[in-house]
Design a protein around this nucleic acid. Structure first.
Lengths: 197, 197
DNA sequence: GTCTATATAAGGATAGAC
DNA sequence: GTCTATCCTTATATAGAC
């Protein structure tokens, strides 16, 4: 009997991956046991191995999926010749904010637990991130040359932007007072104002 | 025979604590074994227990020492009636930057690994942090009232400032191009400009 | 105060019945 | 595809000789 094609997020493996993202975020990769994960999925630990190869594979899946989303968005953005530098920076910033708002588990695991990737994936991941940061620096440098951006260290500016959005982790615990929209606008205006000449 | 009084950072326990901070940062609390720690100190694992009670105790020591430094600086600052709000924010920001530059291991462990504290210390720690953030919000609100600070969400502003400095983690790997001074000035001007009215 | 040896628990992963 | 049972390794921490 032919298998019915399924949407990616309805497969068994996908729901395991998302449960893992949640646990890896809450307890960390090393402190999360396969028995914890099995419990949160509703099976015994041994059963997980019919769907995944190892605990490491889950981390790999989470980290590279997120990394590729960042890279893909930047690719799209850079192919747009009409945008000026400051608008590009803002677009990247808004993308980061939305990922942190919408996919907290996965992006936090990518940020905090990627160090537990096994080689050669760890090196590949770090390299992809290095390249990504350098591309953002180039956009900032371009903005400085064109007089749209203050004369600051491009590297520092990129680090500041990428790190500032990590505060969204704490927003998630107290959403009540500030909506996602307010958060985004407040953060964007705050950070972009700091760049403008 | 009387013991000679020693400076705190020359005791055996202190050097173990600093070695632990380094390992906890690099590998995470859970993934760091007592054998790893013993190896980096130069003894067998069992010998560590003549100086410390448990692995948890080391984490506790690291986290509360840093947390208390932040609180103490804020206490000092707030007792200065002559400073206006924006200057207070800048002073806090500079203090954060310097801690991240000078004590990366300990502040990163405090930030990333404090979740592994045992109760009741975990609750005490989270509460201290909550209070600290609220006090910073108050300073920002004060600045808005007095017309020195743009009308943004105080909570978002505080999260943004406190998170932005985390980028310094990556600066440590590439110090060569940007000095600590440049880093501090670039970050301060960038972030404070975003707040000013 | 440090060592070797070990107690005790928990970790990831596999075998094989159903 | 899920289960029970289990292998094997590693973990924190302790006991007791020196």
């Amino acid at each position: 009997m032919a298998r019915i094609p399924q949407k990616k997020n309805s497969t068994r493996k996908e729901s395991i991956t998302l449960a893992a993202a949640r646990l890896f975020r809450e307890k960390g990769f090393s402190a999360t046991g396969m028995r914890d994960l099995a419990g949160s999925v509703g099976v015994e630990a041994a059963s997980l191995y019919n769907h995944i190869r190892s605990k490491s594979e889950l981390l790999h899946e989470i980290c590279f999926r997120i990394a590729n989303q960042f890279t893909a968005q930047l690719n799209e953005l850079e192919s747009d010749g009409a945008m000026d530098s400051l608008d590009k920076v803002e677009a990247v910033l808004r993308f980061h904010i939305r990922i942190w708002v919408e996919k907290l588990d996965e992006v936090l695991v990518t940020t905090n637990e990627s160090r537990h990737l096994e080689e050669p994936y760890l090196s590949a991941f770090l390299n992809e991130r290095r390249v990504y940061v350098r591309r953002l620096e180039t956009i900032i440098e371009d903005g400085i040359r064109k007089g749209q951006v203050r004369r600051i260290e491009p590297y520092v500016a990129v680090l500041t932007l990428m790190s500032a959005v990590r505060g969204i982790e704490f927003w998630h615990r107290t959403k009540k007072n500030v909506t996602a929209q307010q958060l985004e606008e407040s953060m964007v205006s705050n950070l972009i104002a700091g760049l403008k000449k």
